[in-house]
Design a binder for these strands. Sequence first.
DNA 1: GTGCAAAATTTGGTATACCAAAATCTGTTG
DNA 2: CAACAGATTTTGGTATACCAAATTTTGCAC
Lengths: 219, 219
Amino acid sequence: MAEENRFEHIANRLRRGILRGDLAPGSPIKERDNAAEMGVSRTPMREAIRQLANEGLVVLRPSRSPIVADPSWKEISDCMDLVRALELLSGELACAKATDEEIDQIAAIQARMEAESDSIDEIDLFEIDMEFHVAIVRASHNIPLAETHRSLLSRLWRARFLGSRAGRNQDRVFAQHQAILAALRARDAAAFQAELRNHLSILKQQIRQFYQEVEEETA
Amino acid sequence: MAEENRFEHIANRLRRGILRGDLAPGSPIKERDNAAEMGVSRTPMREAIRQLANEGLVVLRPSRSPIVADPSWKEISDCMDLVRALELLSGELACAKATDEEIDQIAAIQARMEAESDSIDEIDLFEIDMEFHVAIVRASHNIPLAETHRSLLSRLWRARFLGSRAGRNQDRVFAQHQAILAALRARDAAAFQAELRNHLSILKQQIRQFYQEVEEETA
DNA sequence: GTGCAAAATTTGGTATACCAAAATCTGTTG
DNA sequence: CAACAGATTTTGGTATACCAAATTTTGCAC
């Protein structure tokens, strides 16, 4: 994956920690302590924290330690609405501009997902799911769109992961992906968007359910 | 406006320079030289450059000076498609959720724009135009959406400014803004989106024209 | 025990110095 | 004159030290 600067390395490490839940939402990330702990100076740690901050994974507070973001359901929901809008646009563009090779690649991702679904790690499987969506957006041939989408997805990663784990409906997800793929193959933007809407609305529903359960437990 | 850190100050200054065209697209921004020139150390200059980089205004190259971004027409066009998608979503949400006060505020912005149109600076007028669009997005009550939109707008600022200057059709813009506003007042999402599409397509057309003229001159 | 003021700590921000990699310049050699 | 190897410069990255603002703790007085 190319060269990895120290601060990128730290950022990745922190990101993983946050997304896997090792660093609890709301817990502080002290610049100095954390840097010392990982054996680096403040400088790269600073950059890493900034990076995660503008990915939305940590929040900076004036004169206070940065803390791991703890998004409300509203925030998650807002992000998902945004992701939906971006993927709908991607669908329109991809149906018009994607090359046949790109569509084959997307299909290959889905095939891989189905093939490995019961032999691999929960997290790895989920990563493939994300890849599927990312590949579709990339097929739009709109780079700023792809970048924006990627950044939002990483912000939603944890919520989507927890939701999908709670959901336990792999087969239905596969069917939805296949339907989306078929629409793309047919270059039928309207069908694509309909299927995508359906897929994402189910996903969102799942996550909402998960958040409600957590709230009930907390209350 | 809050407090302004040194690096924010530098970032703003550089941004203005880029957007106004004082720093030509493609010209290098040397960390050290630039820092010395502005009487600060490398540290805040670094942060400022990073900031502008992830706003898309400068591009970082490995082992080379960062340079002022020089977006192609394709890139501008892609960003505008993205902005359009975001504003269309905002319209849908704003029609459903904006408060009457917010709508009044948007109307006030437009009124101010019309009132001051021939007494103020070209750039200031343009700033008000941007404010109008930002206010609509804010009325969606979707913060991630607003942030994403803001970041993209700043990236497009220069292109839109140059396009609008070339266009010289203030009255038509006013009419379009009023139409959008009326749809919002009526909470008619479909009408809102139709008017917005129209407005943005004209804007884009203008910018395209401008880019073509520049290309012809260069060729 | 309570309230408040002063001291100590924590924090972000900045300056400066150093290093290694990369790019560029330079001088020599064929 | 061309090509190539070595030296120099430029660049980004990192470590470290210092400062001021803000927070937190401490301790004294009532």
